[in-house]
Amino acid sequence: MEKSAVFKGKLLPYLLLVPQLVITLVFFYWPASQAVWQSFLREDAFGLNSEFIGLENYQALLAQPEYYKAMATTVVFSSLVAALSLSIALLFATQADKNLKAAPTFKVMMIWPYAVAPAVAGVLWLFIFHPTLGTMARPLRLMGFNWNPMLNGNHAMALVVMAAVWKQIAYNFLFFLAGLQAIPRSVLEAGAIDGAGPYRRFWTITFPLLSPTTFFLLVVNVVYVFFDTFGIIDAVTGGGPAGATTTLVYKVYADGRLGGDLGGSAAQSVILMVIVIALTAIQFRYVERKVQY
């Protein structure tokens, strides 16, 4: 006799799935398919003429050297932001996890930046490091450092990376802290009894046990830098100087919204979507293998 319950009806499971499916269809597949369709059209800003042109938008895009430059910029920008925000957050989280008097205050203060909107975060950093208005720009100049993000691409990149990292540390910190608190003390104590120092305990016990959190954060951070950072870039550098901080998502925004080139912009977002899907798939396929749950 079969003991487990079996639902006979075929309808019920589908009905139960409907809300989730509707949400996915309306909020993901529908807009995504619109973007794909739009990428085959040439349209004026007002949508008065539109013409099906097949892959012409893609051809035009891939013939632009600036597009490849934006790709390279994105790689630099996203690696820097993901690496820095993860490692700094991990450092802070391990410190906050210790038995300190001020730990609760410290934790609360760490979480605040996450509540700041990206564009506002950008403006804050711009105020600090603006070459003429910035409070930090003058000391930098006095030290003989020719700080000029208006013309120096590396300086501009450093500025947007700082703003984007600062914004993301809070989020990563929160998850790392939760992850650290879930690690059983007994394991660490056992390590300590066996003579492992704090450094060794961290790398051989804490870090591997934290790997599910790290992996999750890696995926989330990559998506963050790919999609959520254009507000910061727009506020701080506007993609400049000379395109040095124009990432793929910023280019989508600039060409579509500022430039009114909806077809070209849609083609870019389709490519971007494919890249992010591929990247996430790679992460799940290869990186996840190293994760110990």
């Binding site: 506007g238 993609g239 400049g240 100087p241 000379a242 395109g243 600039a254 060409d255 500022l258 430039g259 009114g260 080139d261």
Partner: peptide, 11 residues
């Protein structure tokens, strides 16, 4: 596309 043209020229 003057808005974008200006951006290109500025770049």
């Amino acid at each position: 596309n003057m808005v974008q043209l200006r951006d290109i020229w500025s770049e």
